[in-house]
Design a protein around this nucleic acid. Structure first.
Length: 416
RNA sequence: GUGAGUGUAGCUCAGUCGGUAGAGCACUGGAUUGUGGCUCCAGCGGUCGUGGGUUCGAUCCCCAUCACUCACCCCA
């Protein structure tokens, strides 16, 4: 039997009801905050991600679904959304627009990782980006929006982690200091970290290996190495958070995995998720547009893992029952079925959720089914009724039954 | 890419110290010739993941393989 491939899955009707609820809530809140939807292609030129995300990142180095098109151009299924949004901004010369650009996207991303709890090869992200502003308040406002969203869909306890990794100039200085500090610390480090000392010293800070921790404690903090403008920016950002009563934790070792980040970075985690506990990741990426060959453009945004958020929703209350019929039509015999089909067409045109089965059933079995589907009413269409033109309409809640003519059925349904 | 755990009915799982399997739920029908939910009765449903080995005999033991799950790594 052919099965869905590893790391992909079906979202069946019961679950899609939850997805719809979450997505609707997101669209509503994003719209209130002035964001419009953007839909970019799910595949792009490989170069976009290689340059935009960074050649040295795990994503580009070993997780992308890359293939040659028939004209042997290299294409890649998008592993994240930000690079595409910035590409679109540049391609359509949006900078000519005097306002800042606030867009959101929602859709599948692809990374070839080993699946585990909360991690898939095709997964879904909700992302939002603000292009054209370097104001620290917009950063706080985006986080405020996120908290409202997470609160409204009910994911329970979360923690906001923030940091600043400075601009490229601060970071260059810091990396030097870091390398110096790590030079004589070889013994206390795991093999991975030893390698990273030279290739990507920032990652050492992010190592979760127990034995490495004592060494990491002694390393300089990036926050002490920020230049004056970056220091000020970060302080203002934190001030805007405080003003909004948003609780946060400054984590100097929070180094995000994508190369394009600068200054503010943040992450929202949940204790209810297992090892993959990041619900949202984001930050500022002021250098990205230039890396992609465009004019210098400020950018700030986040990506939120929908699977992870939905995992948390389902731990709470059960999802709402999807589309229960308002009217279940139970035909008895073939002539009655033909008539019932036309009645169903009539009622559906009036917007009534009608259920009409195609397999012949006894009345008892029809009622059982109607009950299982939680139908509001059952309309019995039998041979006697065809003659008299009056049909028993049964209210399932209390079993009360009345005789009505075809055209009076809808007005008798009430809101049951 | 690495490690560990698990694969038995549609679902959740028992079980056989090696003699070709069972429960609950679900499903179908009956108790009520055209009236649901509760209850009772009956029925349907399994190449015991796949391939090989040991054995008179393997779902059980051994090997391989695949799938799923969790963790490492990394991230949403």
């Amino acid at each position: 039997m052919i099965k869905a491939i590893k790391g992909t899955r079906d979202i069946l009707p019961q679950e899609s009801a939850v997805w719809n609820r979450v997505e609707e809530t997101a669209r509503e809140i994003l719209s209130v905050y002035g964001f419009s939807e953007i839909r970019t292609p799910v595949f792009e030129s490989t170069e976009l991600f290689a340059r935009g995300v960074g050649e040295d990142t795990d994503i580009v180095a070993k997780e992308m679904y890359t293939f040659d098109d028939r004209d042997s151009r290299s294409l890649t299924l998008r592993p994240e959304g930000t690079a595409s949004v910035v590409r679109a901004y540049l391609e359509h010369q949006v900078h000519r627009d005097p306002q800042i650009w606030k867009v959101y996207y929602l859709g599948p991303m692809f990374r070839r990782e080993r699946p585990q709890k909360g991690r898939f090869r095709q997964f879904h992200q909700l992302g939002a980006e603000v292009l054209g502003s370097d104001h620290p308040a917009i950063e706080a406002e985006v986080i405020e929006l996120l908290q409202l969203f997470l609160d409204r869909i009910g994911v329970g306890e979360t923690e906001l982690l923030v940091n600043s990794i400075g601009c490229s100039r601060c970071r260059a200085g810091f990396v030097q200091k870091l390398k110096a500090a790590l030079a004589d610390k070889e013994d206390g480090l795991c093999p991975d970290c030893r390698r990273r000392r030279q290739s990507n010293p920032l990652r050492v800070l992010d190592c979760k290996h127990g034995p490495c921790q004592p060494v990491i404690e002694t390393l300089p903090s990036i926050l002490d190495c920020l230049g004056e403008p970056c220091r000020l920016h970060f302080d203002q950002f934190l001030g805007h958070l405080k003003r909004r009563d948003i609780r946060f934790k400054v984590v100097p070792r929070l180094v995000r995995g994508l190369d394009y980040y600068s200054r503010t970075t943040f992450e929202i985690t949940s204790p209810g998720l297992g090892a993959q506990n990041a619900l949202v990741g984001g930050g500022r990426y002021d250098g990205l547009a230039e890396v992609l060959g465009g004019r210098p453009t400020h950018g700030f945004g986040f990506a939120l893992g929908l699977e992870r958020v939905i995992l948390l929703c389902q731990q709470g209350d059960s999802p709402p029952a999807a589309g229960r019929p308002q009217l279940f039509i139970a035909p008895l015999g073939e002539p009655a079925f033909d008539r019932a089909s036309l009645m169903a067409r009539d009622y559906r045109r009036q917007g009534i959720r009608c259920f009409l089965d195609f397999v012949p059933r006894s009345l008892k079995s029809s009622l059982r089914l109607a009950n299982k589907l939680q139908s509001g009413h059952v309309l019995i269409v039998g041979e006697n009724e065809l003659k008299t033109g009056e049909f028993p309409l049964k209210r399932m809640r209390d079993g009360q039954q009345i005789l009505v003519r075809q055209e009076d059925v809808v007005s008798r349904l009430g809101n049951g």
